[in-house]
Simulated scan of single mutants.
Amino acid sequence: MKKIVTGIGALLATAAPVLAGGIERAPQSLAPLFENGNYAELSFGGVNPSVRGTDAAGFETGDVAQGYGFFGLAYKHQFTDNLSGAIIVEQPFGADVLYPIASSPVLGGTRVEVNSTTYTALLRYKFDNNFSVHGGVRGSHADGGVRLQGAGYATTSGYNLDIDGAWGVGWVAGVAYEMPEIAARVSLTYNSPIEHDFDMSESGGPLPITFKDQYTVKTPRSWTLEGQTGIAKDTLLFGSIRWVKWSEFDVDNLLFPIASPAGEIPLVELEDTTTYTIGVGRKFTDNWSGSVSFLYEPSEGDTVSPLAPVNGRKAVTLAAIYSMDNIKITTGINYTKLGDATLGVGPSGAKREVAKMDDSEAWGIGVRIGYSF
């Protein structure tokens, strides 16, 4: 059972979530903090999404989602029987969407790219009554760019936004309760929003000149409830509920939001998301364990932005864990059925339809190598 418990934290992040709500790619799990003793890990992998549909003029959009790779690092140190700490490096937010110019006259040429890396430093104090508290600081470095192109964007077609890299700082806090005799643990973690003061450059569209200034972008706050418990010999049930307040992810600059008679037109408008995961892990031999988990994220809202062209998802992840002495190797494969989406452009509550995306999916594969000492 110990090998399952120490490997289960890899399952939600090894085969990374694919095109999740907003621009989320990883769930910011704090699983390394709950490993036994001192622990270090390296994770890496890749994702191959396929997102396509038909624009409002009847043309195929082509595949608009670009593949990507990911990596992560973590180190956990046990200072005393009660006090431990961890450093976690990951890439929780990202986007790489490009509408081929030759395919769609409505959206062809539209592009969004977002890159981010976060560095989280944590402390955890475990009380004698099985409760523990954890918290720390998180630094985030991000950059990106947006280009709006095609007839769907009307007067804003040709608009280009370049966002230089910048740092932001937030915080993490949570509580957990454990019952080691049945391998049970429940944890609740809050991730604060992080504000980045970006240097941005805008040009094109209705803007006759290039304009440069500094603007603030806030990444969203979130709550994550994670749990696991033994349900039979060598068998573990686990799951999570994650809520992300994407509605506070704003990109405000000189041109956007645009005031119109029907209301303001934002550059990016995303809906809050709730994601549910449940799975079962089992130890087969002294060296081998495995698991299967299922994920469900319901669709939110009637229309979504062409810059985030999916709405909801269902996924299954299979993982195999090989343990030998102090080394643990987890390999996971993930299949995600991405929700059909209606893409809209315009003021909130009065968006005009520019495309419909359907039959979208993604495959992800990842490896995590952990070492306990």
Rank of each mutant, 00 (worst) to 15 (best):
residue 5 V to Q: 05
residue 9 G to K: 03
residue 9 G to L: 05
residue 10 A to L: 03
residue 10 A to M: 08
residue 13 A to H: 04
residue 14 T to V: 11
residue 22 G to Q: 06
residue 30 L to Q: 14
residue 32 P to R: 03
residue 32 P to K: 07
residue 33 L to R: 07
residue 34 F to M: 01
residue 35 E to A: 12
residue 47 V to L: 07
residue 50 S to F: 14
residue 51 V to C: 09
residue 54 T to H: 12
residue 69 G to N: 15
residue 70 F to R: 08
residue 71 F to W: 15
residue 79 F to L: 12
residue 86 A to R: 00
residue 87 I to G: 04
residue 87 I to L: 13
residue 99 Y to A: 11
residue 105 P to W: 05
residue 121 A to T: 15
residue 128 D to W: 04
residue 130 N to S: 13
residue 133 V to W: 13
residue 139 G to W: 15
residue 140 S to Q: 15
residue 144 G to A: 06
residue 144 G to I: 02
residue 151 A to P: 06
residue 152 G to W: 03
residue 156 T to P: 02
residue 162 D to E: 05
residue 165 G to A: 08
residue 168 G to S: 13
residue 168 G to K: 11
residue 170 G to T: 10
residue 173 A to V: 15
residue 175 V to H: 06
residue 176 A to Y: 04
residue 176 A to T: 09
residue 181 E to M: 10
residue 184 A to E: 13
residue 186 V to F: 09
residue 194 I to P: 06
residue 197 D to P: 09
residue 201 S to F: 03
residue 209 I to A: 07
residue 213 D to N: 08
residue 217 V to H: 00
residue 222 S to Y: 08
residue 227 G to M: 10
residue 227 G to C: 09
residue 245 K to L: 00
residue 251 V to K: 01
residue 252 D to L: 05
residue 258 I to W: 05
residue 261 P to L: 14
residue 265 I to M: 11
residue 271 E to N: 13
residue 278 I to W: 01
residue 282 R to Q: 07
residue 284 F to R: 02
residue 288 W to F: 14
residue 289 S to Q: 07
residue 289 S to R: 04
residue 293 S to Q: 13
residue 295 L to G: 03
residue 306 P to S: 10
residue 316 V to S: 01
residue 317 T to K: 02
residue 317 T to N: 04
residue 317 T to S: 04
residue 321 I to P: 01
residue 323 S to A: 14
residue 326 N to W: 04
residue 328 K to Y: 09
residue 330 T to R: 04
residue 331 T to L: 11
residue 333 I to V: 15
residue 337 K to N: 13
residue 339 G to R: 09
residue 349 G to D: 08
residue 354 V to G: 09
residue 356 K to A: 10
residue 356 K to T: 12
residue 359 D to M: 03
residue 363 W to Q: 12
residue 368 R to N: 14
residue 369 I to M: 13
residue 371 Y to F: 15
